[in-house]
Simulated assay, not measured.
Amino acid sequence: MDKHTLRKVYLEKRKMLSIDEYQRRNLLLLEQLKRFFASHQFSNIHVFLPIRQQKEPDTFPFIKYLWENKPEVQVITSISDLVKPEMQHYKIDKQIVITPNKWGIPEPQNATVFPITEIDCVLTPMVVGSKSGHRIGYGKGYYDRFLEKCLPQTKSVGLSLAPLLDGDLYAETHDKVLGTMITPFEIVNTH
């Protein structure tokens, strides 16, 4: 099975999750995130904002957890430029309004631009990932380009609602290997 087919299969599996199962997996994912971050110290965490209609991992409860329990941590998110595949990054807080753009992607309004070089952890969305740190996203390369611009010590963490697979998932030379993979079922440090 090639990368394109794996993406298609796992997007379909995610779409087929019942609402109850989607919510259950997100609650388990939140607990795994809390566990992971209890043993790590980060100052500036980049968190993607989920498209809930696509049943992406719901990061909003984790963002709320950070705001309520880790006030020293800054939460960063991004807005994707859909013409050229790159992202601009913004600091968000409780006062920032988040609204979906015309494609349904949640975006912060009137947020402050945040420099990539100050981000020390990036939560990266995955359709599916492997225990070796490879991920399959949507295939546009936004996160590969973003992670390439981060400092070498920036921790990259993949998030998926699907169980991790064995192997390299047909990794290509431009694909960034992630340091940690988190699903509702496990946390795997890859290096």
Rank of each mutant, 00 (worst) to 15 (best):
S78E: 00
F42N: 09
Q41L: 08
L82D: 00
L66N: 04
V83T: 11
N69Y: 09
D58C: 12
S43E: 14
Y65W: 14
T77S: 09
K70N: 02
Y65H: 10
P50T: 15
Q53C: 01
R52E: 06
F60E: 01
P85N: 13
E72H: 15
H89P: 05
I76P: 09
P50N: 15
P50S: 15
S39M: 01
L82H: 01
I76T: 09
V73N: 12
K64L: 14
E86Q: 06
I76L: 07
E56M: 09
F60P: 00
H89Y: 11
N69Q: 14
S43R: 13
S80Q: 05
D81K: 03
V75H: 12
D58F: 10
P61C: 01
K55E: 03
K84D: 04
L82Y: 07
L82R: 07
Y90F: 15
I63L: 08
V73S: 12
N69V: 08
E72V: 13
Y90D: 02
H46I: 11
S39E: 08
W67N: 02
N69F: 07
Q74N: 15
V47Y: 12
H89L: 00
I63R: 05
S78F: 00
S39W: 09
I45R: 05
E68M: 09
F48E: 05
Q88K: 07
K64A: 14
N69T: 13
Y90I: 04
V47K: 10
Y90H: 05
F62E: 04
S78Q: 03
V47P: 00
P71V: 06
I79R: 09
I79L: 11
M87Y: 05
S39K: 00
E68S: 07
W67E: 01
Q88L: 03
H40G: 07
Q88H: 11
P57A: 15
E56K: 01
P57Q: 11
V47D: 04
K64E: 15
V83M: 02
F42G: 02
E68K: 03
V75N: 11
P57V: 14
L82E: 10
